[in-house]
Design a protein around this nucleic acid. Sequence first.
DNA 1: ACTATTTTTTTGAGGCTCGAAAAAAAGCCT
DNA 2: AGGCTTTTTTTCGAGCCTCAAAAAAATAGT
Lengths: 413, 413
Amino acid sequence: MSVGIRHDDLRRRNRAMVISAVRRAGQPSRTEIAATTGLSHSTISAISADLIQEGILTESKASEPTALKRGRPQIGLALNPEAAAVLTVVLSLNFLSVAVIDYAGQVIAEEQRRLDTLVMPRDELIGECLAIVRRRLQDPDLDVGSVARIAMGIQGITDSHARAMLWSPITPLTDIPFADILEREFGIPATMENDCNMMAVALRWRDPERYRDNFIAILLSHGIGMGLVLKGELFTGTHSSGGEFGHMIHRPGGALCRCGRRGCVEAYAGNYAIWRSAMEISEDAAPTDVGDADMRALAAKARQTDGPEREAYRRAGEALGFGLGSLFALIDPAPVAMVGVSAAAFDLIEPALREAIAQTAGGQHSNSISFDTEPNELPLIREGCAMRALTFVDQEIFAPGVQARSSAGKIVA
Amino acid sequence: MSVGIRHDDLRRRNRAMVISAVRRAGQPSRTEIAATTGLSHSTISAISADLIQEGILTESKASEPTALKRGRPQIGLALNPEAAAVLTVVLSLNFLSVAVIDYAGQVIAEEQRRLDTLVMPRDELIGECLAIVRRRLQDPDLDVGSVARIAMGIQGITDSHARAMLWSPITPLTDIPFADILEREFGIPATMENDCNMMAVALRWRDPERYRDNFIAILLSHGIGMGLVLKGELFTGTHSSGGEFGHMIHRPGGALCRCGRRGCVEAYAGNYAIWRSAMEISEDAAPTDVGDADMRALAAKARQTDGPEREAYRRAGEALGFGLGSLFALIDPAPVAMVGVSAAAFDLIEPALREAIAQTAGGQHSNSISFDTEPNELPLIREGCAMRALTFVDQEIFAPGVQARSSAGKIVA
DNA sequence: ACTATTTTTTTGAGGCTCGAAAAAAAGCCT
DNA sequence: AGGCTTTTTTTCGAGCCTCAAAAAAATAGT
């Protein structure tokens, strides 16, 4: 079961804590770090001396316009951008993008490509991913050896260990162990992350005030996805990436969902469902792909006239509201971020959503539940992947445990 | 944010680990503890010498019929029953029970009382609880000073810090801070726990093989409650005890629930809902109390003839199945324990439940989801409270952190 | 009685954090 | 300018903790 704390773990954990304090705070002084971590000044001094000597941190003398104060000025500590680099791969519908990011979090190279993900055979899809990564790694401007981690994000379900894509709406293929494939090809540790989870991670870094310990990121796109942070931790399923909010049951035996089942929230609130409803096509009709431009036109029409388009958004709001109500019954209410193309139509969705949620036990005080919108999910996913990879480097490479230390470079299976 | 590890914390944590290893394993030898905790023999030897000297552990020479082996025989370590005692209070519909339990987990005294919880005024209800505790504490056979912790369990919603009852079906009263009340009255640290959470805790101690890291305990009684363990941790809401499975929405705008809303799972699967449906009373009718004997008679009738009684159980199964399907979409499937009087009628519920769950995304491989039943919830709740209180003593009193050490006896607010 | 085997304790070394004191690096004041 | 104050950072010794190795203890087999 839970394991004892060894004597060496102590330093390792406190190192990790100092690094993470610097990553969060930007340019904290040693004194500030001591205050936030609760460790003594002497300990922080010793650890940061080590980290600077190892090239992980740097002293940034040129601190911001220092508020004129008496006493020895604080010396800001910053992440050394050259300490390492990470690579992010984001695979979404018909689109593949890669970025190389330095240790301080700045993008230093990127590349994007259009693909027909829906029809590509397995080998080709994997091949395209490997090829784009290889091109970036072979960039002469880049010191290849410094790429310490790859984080790949994909729309769809991944396993709970972040190793494989289990199922995805962007391809009929299933069970592709992308993390293992990337590690085998490039010898760099990799993970396979769920898109909505990465959105949640990114939101937390973007706005820690609002998105701190408990919040929900919901992707309103072709499908409905969710990333959930509870008590400061990303919530995942026990076997899969979990949080399949879109496939909670809204109406037993109801509209046909893309997953082949009936009555899921997504079957009322996914792009295809809103489209189907607005066009007054049967609820039993097979889901079709709807482009972002078409969805924006639909929203415009719904705003203009009170017809089936507006009703379609109303029904989507109702499904989302009852779904959120059920979710809130389980976890208590939390702030929500709506992301994706239909988040731009949240004005059409919100009234019915609030009305529905007010009818649920989880929606008590539904007026106090706050929603935020962000129409563009891709930057969020990439940012999330970047932070995921960087914090891995922080913890597993620059503050390694006993196992990792004895077998540097070996990929953990 | 997260705080650094001090040097003194190390010993504290490892002490706690040794104690918990003994509590889990029964009579482990030092060598076994070293193996399970991963600490060295010398460390375990030093820590256990301390604990024995302080009267927390004892060496149990008279170990079980030792498998004849060469070498120095292992000396079993056991919890010293006299090291401390805890007190459990369980308040349920019309029933109040108290037990005193020694440090090794044996019940050493108990008392039970019938009350009219539904109609008692606030002062009287609190007064009865205090009186029954006081009687047990004043028992001359009991060394009062040794009672180190009180855990109170109640049917209903508690806050996430386990301090107060927020709402309960057994009384119209709300927001009673029982933990504070007990602490003020007796000067003993106390917590206020949710019944279903305690059921889950108890199941884990009873059968750690089956109920280890991920499982669900569902109370099928007047209302529907849930205790959820995910990744080895009890899952609670962010503000409340959470996990209000019974108030997930089964059918928007559907049958009237005891909570005043419509379409909750409970409005189809709670005792009153099954009764209402079997008697062919309107779904809009106000919930009524149904005795356990009546429910058993109803189940018998349903088994005998295919009438409205059987249909009522079928509809309960359907609601539970779709509810579990939605839950499993969020957390992935896990073993389920059905507890309470209607668990005895699970044979009537199961077919429709499995049929419904198979129609949900979370219910993939629904045949592999296993159900267990336990008709009697009260012993489980008491056991859970006992283990809760005992592990608190293990961790907070016998392996105290810096704060607790410097202010012994002070109640943490 | 002696040896082999296994468990437990003892001992010394090394490492970590902490508090106190010293050193460093400014601004402030006369 | 020079001394003083204030604040940050570093240094140093003390006290713990864990670990590995060696020693001691306890028993079965021969």
